[in-house]
Design a protein around this nucleic acid. Structure first.
Lengths: 346, 346
DNA sequence: GCAATATTCAAAAACGTTTTTGGAGATCGG
DNA sequence: CCGATCTCCAAAAACGTTTTTGAATATTGC
């Protein structure tokens, strides 16, 4: 009868080499108390047999997975967000250099985010956790902190007493608004990204502070919160115009909102740029190609990702930290940040 | 002194309920031979204690992970390829509906692809494997087939005797070329995606067959293979023009190539569309915004992804298959597929 | 040359579950 | 009312590693 076709195990390597199972394990895992010659012999036998340690078994015994999980939240799964891939590319690079594997899981529903984290941590599926879209008061952050589980976030909380990397959206908001003011605009609107996220609040504060610094108070009618769908930038512009708020310039929290806003402007016969100045954020690929080109901010996401990965590796290596770092974005000047024209051509 | 702070285990749930460890396990895993009342009690206790089965242990004993791995290859990690995220979104949806988790790993170097697959399979890290960028003769496919490990690919091999989903690039190539011919173009060039991939060959065959069907032989000088970087579409156009090959229309294997080609055309004073017709493939977001809009093909990637996921679930459920399915792409008419103008305006 | 220390390896325990095996009590048919 | 069949659960084995423990041999210091 045919053999039961047992799976190849460390035992087979031991038999092949005439060594004990424990020695084989120690040789394969790079322990120092095994003679070089022995190690070579073991490695040769393992290679020859095609043996690899079973993941579940080794992770059960050693209590580590060598996996870092990045949880991507709904908005990132829904759009082709350049934020996503470039960032991950950097993270992966930094992790694999230290022997860690990057695993990506998706949180489709907003409510499942926490559940996914709990599951990953409590079931011991990974050694460290990465995620973004942090909120001013973030349940996930608090829970992980309380448990002492290693994690780094993209974005801060209000307390910010954990490890994070972040793009300086305060500075972005401030610079964008100031530039528009210097171009002669007195009524600058802000179409904000969802204010449940911390970074949106930072951008908003930057916007307001820039206005204040120039003696222009902020007008609630000029501030509209947009959600991450394709339409709300347009809706916001429509609202601004139909209500007669009449801004002459707009700072948008991201390019998707800006693009949507531009669409609405054209419907109203307003030329984005000449008739209404516009600055976005993110520099998505379309930004360079739409109309006369959208002026926006670019972030070095590769660098941000590598930073994120390196922080995680440092934490996992026992470095207590704190690990916190702010990244600057670069203003990309294109065609939509034009001076106040004094009214649109009829 | 202080308790050793042991990790919460199934034993604790057993003690809490006064049941045996085995019964708790069976209750939690939905076996039928446990009284409803007992099951409820166990679930309540587990919930109350916050217990979750350790992943490594359960996967070691049960020999399954409930994980399906999608390996993404280098080109997909490098660009913001819409192919990627939409596809994964669909896959994830189909998998999680059946209790499987989607895990994504990246193959940065081309050469590591195979190594990653071996590692995943031999170490028992997942129950099934998904990947794309298949080649006419694909080492990965052969190896997995020989091992009998469950996998589905995006794209076929020459033999195609495994499970796959694919976009019908033959039809795309045929339709695009035929459309250009009907518009009066006799010299239609083809900027192909890398021919090491199977789908590129299908597109090329479609292109050639359409020419043949109209009594136009294919001219090797009109066929240029482009690699997936931003520049080669431009390089190819430059080559066509400087060599005096003078096509009046181009069918591009994808939109990135087409966009790059358009850039080069403009440098030569050739207007994409009026002076040289152009059809791309993929309908990346920029395609709608560039110039007068790029005519291209759109694929329903969500559907493709869900199909992929459902096939994997079926396989894992024991359905022997074969599971093979071809998906049609939709022609999106925009501004670059114009009739032969008889020469460009000087 | 002898005790002390280093080096190298083997045996066995441990990791936390699921699965196998089997047995006690309940239910059923006649 | 008795044997047969079900229902529900407990005890123990098993999964394939890594880690702990300890012992044999080789090396060193004096």
């Amino acid at each position: 009868m045919g053999e039961p076709a047992r799976r190849l195990g460390i035992r087979d390597v031991a038999e092949q080499t005439g060594l004990s199972v424990s020695t084989v394990s120690r040789a394969l895992n790079g322990y120092s108390d095994v003679k070089l010659e022995t190690r070579r012999k073991v490695e040769a036998a393992a290679e020859h047999l095609g043996y690899r340690a079973n993941f579940a078994a080794s992770s059960l015994r050693s209590k580590q997975t060598n996996i870092v999980t990045f949880m991507v939240s709904k908005p990132w799964t829904k759009f082709v967000d350049p934020f996503f891939l470039s960032l991950l590319d950097g993270v992966e690079l930094a992790l694999q250099a230290q022997g860690y594997a990057l695993q990506i899981i998706m949180a489709r529903e907003h409510e499942t985010e926490f559940e996914i984290i709990r599951n990953s941590v409590e079931r011991g599926r990974c050694d460290g956790l990465l995620f973004g879209r942090t909120r001013p008061e973030d349940e996930r952050v608090e829970w992980l902190k309380a448990r002492g589980f290693p994690f780094v976030t993209v974005g801060r909380t209000d307390k910010s007493d954990h490890d994070w990397v972040d793009v300086d959206h305060y500075r972005i908001g401030h610079m964008a608004t100031e530039r528009l003011i210097r171009l002669g605009h007195a009524r600058v609107a802000h179409l904000a990204t969802p204010l449940r996220y911390t970074y949106s609040n930072h951008a908003l504060r930057g916007y307001r502070d820039a206005l204040d610094a120039h003696g222009i108070g902020h007008d609630p009618a000029l501030e509209i919160e947009c959600y991450l769908s394709r339409k709300t930038g347009a809706d916001a512009v429509t609202e601004l115009i139909t209500r007669g708020v009449d801004p002459t310039a707009i700072f948008c929290g991201n390019d998707v909102i800006a693009l949507s806003a531009m669409e609405a402007m054209r419907q109203f016969g307003i030329r984005p740029g000449p008739d209404m100045a516009l600055i976005g954020c993110d520099d998505i690929p379309v930004a360079a190609h739409v109309g006369m080109g959208l002026t926006t901010f670019r972030q070095d996401l590769d660098a941000l990702g590598m930073l994120l990965g390196r922080m995680m590796v440092a934490k996992l290596g026992g470095d207590a930290g704190p690990h916190q770092q702010l990244i600057d974005a670069e203003l990309i000047l294109r065609g939509t940040d034009l001076p106040q024209s004094g009214g649109r051509a009829e």
